[in-house]
Simulated assay, not measured.
Amino acid sequence: MAMARIIRPLRRALISSSKSVTQKNPNPLHLQSPISIFTTRSYISEMRKSAFEGNILRLLRSEIEYELEHFTPKELVVEYDSFVVEERPGEQWIRLKKKFGEKEEIKIEVTMFDGSIPVEKSPDGIRIGQEVELHITLIVNISKGEGSDVLEFVCSAWPQSVEIVNVLVHGKDGRPNQLYMSPKFKDLDDELQESLYEFLETRGIDDDLAIFVHEYMKNKDKTEFIRWMGTVKSFIEQK
């Protein structure tokens, strides 16, 4: 009984002391009003968002600065070997157009780099030059005036050569004018293949054109990359 009389007052004292401490130092997460908790969490979330976006902007500015220091844009070319060159900022291709002879109209759509192959190794296993060769697709359409069919060459442009991949015939509406599309170009007679290459070369679609479009697309690729980074940076900077 004596021990119980000692313990009960001690328990009351401890409970009273605990309440006093709680009143002096309230737990901010449990005792604050819902509005106050929401405001605190929103502030923390906004700080994190600001820090995250600030890091993205820092990286973008650094990358843009680096590219501008190491890249000098070349003057825009509007004509090459009687071809008129058409380009629009932000597009993934360019167009070349010209007339040939009295009737022919030649239009070429040139993609940006859309593939690559490894460079062959030398006998000692050391790579020669760059590690890959970049690939560009050329879609060559040749027509002979309004209402004529269109002879289409699908070509691969490597850094110093043009290779014919396929030859198609389209109607004036752009659709194939027969169910039989075409044989694989590599399956054609060798002499016929050579004659078709000469047909294109006579119209200025040759290895020199491959060199031109590769140089042009290197410049466009860098220009578009810098433009893209600037657009992303401007968007993130908006409040």
Rank of each mutant, 00 (worst) to 15 (best):
R95F: 01
S50R: 15
R127D: 05
D81G: 02
D189Y: 07
N141R: 12
T40E: 15
E201L: 04
T137K: 10
P159Q: 00
K107H: 02
E102Q: 12
H135G: 01
R11V: 08
S156R: 15
R5C: 01
L76G: 09
F83M: 02
T39A: 11
Y43Q: 13
H70G: 03
K233V: 00
N141I: 01
V165E: 12
E191W: 06
G90L: 13
K103N: 02
G129A: 08
D149C: 01
P28Y: 11
I6V: 11
D149W: 02
K98M: 03
K49A: 12
H170P: 01
A4E: 13
D206R: 07
A13M: 10
I108T: 01
F225H: 13
V119E: 14
S36V: 14
K107N: 04
F199N: 07
E133R: 15
I136Q: 10
E67L: 15
E75P: 07
M181Y: 14
T22S: 14
P26T: 00
M1Q: 07
R127V: 10
M3K: 15
E69K: 15
E237Q: 15
S122P: 05
S182I: 05
K220Q: 12
V154Y: 07
K107A: 00
F52D: 02
R8L: 02
T22V: 11
L29T: 08
T137P: 00
S16E: 06
V77L: 10
D114L: 04
P118F: 03
V232N: 05
T40V: 11
G54W: 12
A2E: 15
W158P: 00
S17M: 14
F113N: 09
P183W: 12
R12D: 02
A210Q: 05
V165W: 04
K121E: 07
F225M: 12
L31F: 12
R11Q: 05
F52V: 02
S33E: 07
S156M: 10
D187Q: 07
P176Q: 03
E67C: 12
E237F: 11
I94M: 14
K218A: 02
L151D: 11
M229L: 14
S182E: 08
G90W: 13
N166G: 03
N25M: 10
P73K: 05
S148F: 05
K19L: 04
D114I: 06
S42E: 10
V77A: 08
V21C: 06
E237T: 06
L168V: 09
L151P: 04
S45K: 15
K172R: 12
I64S: 03
G125D: 07
L68G: 04
L10R: 14
L60H: 09
R58I: 04
A51D: 04
K99L: 00
D187N: 08
T137S: 06
L68Q: 15
T202Q: 12
S50F: 09
D149S: 05
A157I: 09
K107Q: 03
S18K: 15
K144C: 03
L179W: 11
R12H: 03
R203Q: 01
